[in-house]
Structure formats: C-alpha cells, structure tokens
Amino acid sequence: MTSDVTVISPPAFGIGTRYARLLPGIVLLLLIGYLGKLTEQSIAAYGRAHQVTLPNIEYVLWAIVFGLIVSNTIGVPSICEAGVETYEFWLKAGIVLLGVRFVLGDVLRLGGLSLVAVVLELAISIVVMTALGRVFKLPPKLTSLLSIGASICGVSAIIAAKGAIDADDEDASYAIAAILALGAVSLFLFPVIGHALGMSDASYGLWVGLAVDNTAEATAAGALYSDAAGKFAVLAKTARNATIGFVVLGYALYWVRRGGAAGVANKAAFLWQKFPKFVLGFLLISGLATAGFFTRAQSTDLANLSRWAFLFTFAGVGLRTNVRALARQGWRPLVVGVAGECVIATVTLAMVLIASRFSS
C-alpha cells in the first residue's frame, strides 16, 4: 500500500495526467462500495415491506464481497489498477475525519490504554512469529517481515521494513500475501467469535485493533460488529500503527548488526519518516471537536464523510484480494502466518477479556 521511498516530491496525488490516471479505479471503488450500500438498504427495505426479519448484513461485507467477486472472476481492469490502489488513501482520510467522533481526553486515555496492550501484543507477536519462522525454516528476513507485519500494521509495515532491512521482493510479497490472506479470514471470523462470546463494543473493538494486522481489515472487522466497535477498533489500531517506526527501526538495527542491511544514519529522522502522519490529523480533528469547533450537525456531516471514505476502502479490500495469487505464494509462510495469528488472536482476546473484567 505504501513504499519506503523517501522522496517527497512529486506528490502522489498531483494534478493533470497523474490524477486522471487514478480516476477509473476511484470510480470503480465508488461503484462497488455504493452497490454494497444499496444492497444493505434494499434488503432492509424488502424486510420492512414484507414484514419479515432478515439478517442485517452491513454494507461493509457487501462491498468486500462484490470486490472479491470482481477481482476473482473478470479481474480488476488494468486501467483501474492505479485508482484501486488509492483505497488506503481514503482509509487514512476517513480515519482523520473519524477523529470528530472522539473526545480528545478519551482518545488519550483509551489510546494510552491501547498502547499498553499494544506493547504486550508487539512482544508476543515478535516472539511467536520468530519462533515459528525458525521451526518452519523460513528465510530469516522473511521471518522478520512476517513478525513486523503481524506485530504492527500489516502491509504498510512490511513495505516500510523491506527497504530498511534490505529484504528481497519475493520475501516481501510472501509476507504481504500471508498477512492479506489472514486479514480476509479474520473479517469473517472475528465478528462471529465476538458475538459468540457476547463481547461489548469496546472489548471487541480493542481486540480487533490489536489482533487484525492490516488497518483496512481491522476497520472493516470492527464496523461489521457495530458502529461503536468500529470506532474502538480504529482507535486501537491507530495506536498500534503509531509504533511502526520503533519496531521497523529495531529490526533495521538488528540487521545492520548482522551485516545484512545498510546503516541508519539518523534515528530521529528515521522514526519521523516512518511515523504514520494521519495519526496527527486524527488527533488534531479530535482536539478541534473537543474544543467545540464544530457544531453537532457539522460533526455529523464530518462523520458521514468519514463513512463515505471508508466505503471506498472496503471496496478496495475486496478488489485487491486475489485468491489465486495468494495460493501461488506457497504454503509455508501461510502456515507460519496462520499459526502465529491464531496464537496472537487468542492471547490478545484473553488480554481484552481480563481487562474488561477488571474495568467492569
């Protein structure tokens, strides 16, 4: 979703041809996402008209499913590929706007709480993934990439780390495929487990934010449970994303010591370069909302805009998941990923359940 290129200009979203090239894919994202929203509304309207109780399947799931159908049947047309890749951009814009729904004090309190859980989760993920990588004799750098992907924020963390530890393209694509496959599975599995355990929105959201690796999937898995759970998932995941620089730096220094990567000249600059800047925007909007800068109606408008932005994201999640391409990546990284993620999901679930017992 992102690369570790440090050159700032030219901007990814300029004007003219660069922008025009993105349009077809953005239109496809909108079409698929909107079709998902229409489907949810149509089913609800049908149920009301015929007085039957139909399961309320959120637009989130429809958008992902329609995206999956397109990408795994006719495929994403090449003219749309560049635009479809913008789904992460919409996710970030949506998260910034979602800040309007948080009181800054809550963000700092819950974010701080999440960060404590994140630190534990990071330690567990790195230990589990490293051990599994050794057992299954994966290349050491692939193991590092899987650990980074599982501990922080999936694809962007892997891509950020790839440059920092001089990993092969092949290792990076293996690790990304494993993380994406697991993300797709967790979308369907996590809400079922959450409902089976009768988890509160806050507990479920925190669990998703800690255990689902990719931000888009974490946002979707949270929103599938409830709006409130989606908010908590975004907050926990954002806190987790904020640690990306530290973990990637740690791995970079580890590989420098082993002679497998070029040195890091300026650690502070490195941390700033890897820091997800949209987190700052999220905090700033939350601060403005807390200070009463927006009226209630304006806050609702901004929250709705955030939902529209997420609509593009969820369509993108389906559109860029190609089952055959994932299957081609081989089974060993996937086995390590599945085993590791099961352990991480179980441990983080236990952490969240214990924490909720103490806080209630």
């Binding site: 700032i8 970030k92 370069q273 890897k274 925007g281």
Partner: peptide, 30 residues
C-alpha cells in the same frame, strides 16, 4: 510515497472539515 500519501489524506480531510465548518458543503447524508 508514504509521506506524501499520508499528508495528502490529512490535507483532504482538513479541507473537507473547513468546507463543512464554513457551510460551503451541503449537508452530507449517509
């Protein structure tokens, strides 16, 4: 790329927020 995309997302979100604040954007339905 990461830097610029992140910043552009922030710029877009704040532009939208400014438009909403100034009343330049009509009510956003969902």
């Amino acid at each position: 790329m990461q830097l610029s995309r992140d910043w552009w997302a922030v710029v877009l979100a704040f532009t939208a927020a400014l438009f909403v604040k100034l009343g330049a954007l009509p009510h956003v339905p969902w």
